[in-house]
Nucleic acid binder design. Structure first.
Lengths: 350, 350
DNA sequence: TAAAAGTATGCAATCGGTTTCAGTTGTTAA
DNA sequence: TTAACAACTGAAACCGATTGCATACTTTTA
């Protein structure tokens, strides 16, 4: 438990003032090159480390970025966080992370903690329950930039980073239709969240554009968990007539739904074609492999952090618009390929 | 960009001293109950928030815990982190997270950042490359507790939190032997890391105890990634004779190995039985479902944080020992069940 | 050669809570 | 009635780095 070395200790040692020490360590131009050299050597030798709290207190900034996610243990968020950490680390920022566990109360509490920790900026992916953005107002009114990613909401002072969910869902649904599906069910999450609302729209528009009817009862909303996938499958099995296509808003749910349907004797994709969303590892593991939308988690995290840093450092010019769209694409695999898979399978069966 | 309210503002407003304000807000006993009431009302009304930096500077502690993990985007670490965040949040601590990406340099750099951020304690799961613990010495010599979890190393002043990898591997291997396997391959990671070294031991001892030969060439070490699983499968396919059992040190790798073997026409578990490690979601999705070791990620995170807090708060009595072992168990599924699966399958084929 | 400009350094105030020590008031015991 | 004590409250130092302003010394310019 040795005592910490401060700039005062170094000052005493070298018979200089703390001012000069501070300047030298920050590479201030008004300090003689040789003096700087002497100081940094002494600092290293004495084992000096800067006290960030004193520094932050004085400078009124913290080099810390706050992050609020619904769940830490989700493949998408893990990779987004990995991307954020990468950039933050490169730029000398710390990340403080907390999870809302899909509840508003925790999201509000976390926002408060972040505020009290005086983060320089905040990244948020909203919980299922969140209805309004009041708990972020205090950041905005203090000029602390807030960026939403993935699960976003409209706010005139905040940038959002998303993929084009509507278009992705439109593509997915159209693909099902092209594969011969005409009675397509959509399984999705809480429609308060843009991601699910937009995917529903994309699904709906694709149906309409292909002259297929849209009915409310073909839309099942739930928690998008493994369990929800099972339940959705039960609901589907109870439908009459049975649908011939399913578009699910995430892979976890799609995979468990697919498994349940298979167990019930449904042949995928012959009886029903399925498409998921996210391109999680499981989509490549399940049999048949799941057609899905590739979702750039890591990239989204990196972009979110980069844009946030630009805003923190006041260079607003570089930001193209209030919403940043990232590319996503449909990855076609067996679970939706009716023609081809049948062609492939037949020779095997003979 | 409104100005922040400080205790001085409140003091002026209520005609009291900053001292009393500070005490009242910290619920110090030497402040009159009514005064406290008045102060906390005024504070709330004026929108006061404490400046953590001033407070930390004075109190010389930060209520912040550092975490260094190899990768953020791994199912195990995500759930461990989720557990840590839960406890940290409950106890009013912040978590600063960084990833080493399996390299020593980054691990050292991250440790330095954590040190400069003056974390009150540090949680670490070591990178593949780490050979020594020198970069953690400065924490220890300053009395900052360091706890290793999962990927641990021996250090007389640090607690480690692990599962009994040797025993788990022993169980897994014994199970394969009981299912009739006699030529078992083990796929594992860098043997510098306890988790892999211990699993190798468990595998070896199980063989020996069942009078089966242990040979180096049946042990394949690699990066334990999806890609590594494919490569391992190729190696296995080139073996002569082919093994009849495979014990893999993680599920990601086991699943991709299993898929590759299946594609090559190997029947699982009839030709080869496979066991993984971790109980990731994919182990329940792959066909046949993967027998695996259930790994308590969330719980390990919670325990790690709780023990760390105990050490930070100086109550060393509660800590049973230098190493804390958590329970893990073998989850038997189809990929290793030779007798039963065959029995099930036959009627289907007839 | 004096004035102006440039270079290098230091003084002292500041950021906003926390804490030590001392002081005031009121109460109780002797 | 006075000493002893409890219950509050406050003044001022402190944590350690940063920074506006002043100062001392050099060098250049007129």
């Amino acid at each position: 438990m040795e005592k910490d070395i401060t700039i005062y200790d170094i000052a005493r040692e070298l018979d200089l003032s703390p001012t000069t020490i501070s300047r030298a360590l920050n590479d201030h131009p008004a300090v003689n090159q040789k003096t700087k050299q002497r100081i940094s050597e002494a600092a290293a030798q004495m084992g000096y480390r800067s006290n960030l709290f004193a520094s932050n207190l004085r400078k009124q900034r913290t080099n810390t970025i706050g992050l609020i996610v619904p769940r830490l243990d989700s493949p998408f968020h893990s990779s987004a966080i990995a991307g954020m950490e990468k950039i933050a680390n490169e730029e000398g920022y710390n990340l403080i992370i907390s999870q809302s566990l899909e509840t508003v109360q925790k999201e509000i509490a976390n926002a408060k903690t972040m505020f009290d920790s005086r983060v320089d900026g905040l990244l948020v992916s909203l919980s299922f329950e969140t209805e309004n953005l009041d708990h972020f107002e205090r950041f905005i009114s203090k000029g602390i930039p807030v960026i939403f990613y993935d699960r976003v909401a409209e706010h005139k002072d905040c940038t959002s980073i998303v993929i084009d969910n509507l278009q992705a869902a439109y593509k997915a649904t159209s693909h099902l239709i092209e594969q011969g599906c005409s009675n397509i069910v959509h399984i999705t999450g809480n429609l308060k969240r843009n991601v699910y609302a937009d995917r529903l729209k994309g699904y709906k528009y694709a149906l309409i554009d292909h002259n297929l009817p849209f009915t409310e009862c073909n839309v099942l909303t739930g928690q998008m968990t493994e369990e929800a996938g099972r339940q959705a499958a039960e609901q589907i099995l109870a439908m009459d007539p049975l649908p011939d296509g399913i578009f699910v808003s995430n892979d976890t749910c799609a995979v468990s739904c697919l498994k349940t349907l298979k167990q019930a004797g449904i042949s995928i994709p012959r009886d029903m074609a399925i498409i998921g969303f996210n391109n999680d590892l499981t989509s490549r593991v399940v049999e048949p492999n799941l057609t899905t939308i590739n979702y750039p988690g890591q990239e989204m995290g990196e972009v979110a952090l980069k844009v946030l840093l630009m805003q923190i450092n006041g260079s607003t010019e570089g930001i193209p618009s209030n919403t940043i769209n990232l590319r996503s694409d449909l990855i076609i695999r067996e679970s939706s390929l009716r023609g081809k898979v049948l062609a492939k399978k037949k020779p095997l069966l003979l």
